[in-house]
Amino acid sequence: MSRKLVVGFDGSDASLRALDFAITRAQAQGDSLLIAHVLEWSPYSFLTPSELEERHRRRKEELLRAETAVMRPVMKRMEDAGIPFETTMRYGHIAETLCRVAKDADGAMIFIGRMGNSGFATRIFGSVAATLAQVAPVPVVIVP
């Protein structure tokens, strides 16, 4: 049975490695890919009045930019690989949103790249990979 593999993708080298690894798995097992790009966003951040006014327009611009800069190059790669795939772009907390994407699409696994930061910031704020490993509803593959 064909399964759906969710790939968290942000255009970084790490996420490209995760994508490549997911492609090899999908080719081997006859799975399809769901490539998810999450734009970091919190509904609890504070905005000025003019930011409120422009938010709807900015959101459209951000999605357009993500589409052209992040997603379009991937399309090419995917068509070359010849595997069935879909893409999705979401706003939210990255790890939580990837979980939601996997849940909504009935994904079998989540693939993400590891940024490899081991610094102070990661200790304080945690990393997407670590959070996903803790909370994901499906198996998570963390590609180094």
Binding site: P43, F46, L52, R55, H56, E62
Partner: peptide, 24 residues
């Protein structure tokens, strides 16, 4: 955000409109 459509994420939330008005 209990009644906010997840597909509208990235738009101005009720929380944001409230806090901006409050800061005034």
């Amino acid at each position: 955000g209990d009644y906010s459509d997840p597909n509208d994420a990235g738009e101005v939330s009720h929380f944001q409109a409230l806090t901006t008005a409050l800061s005034g």
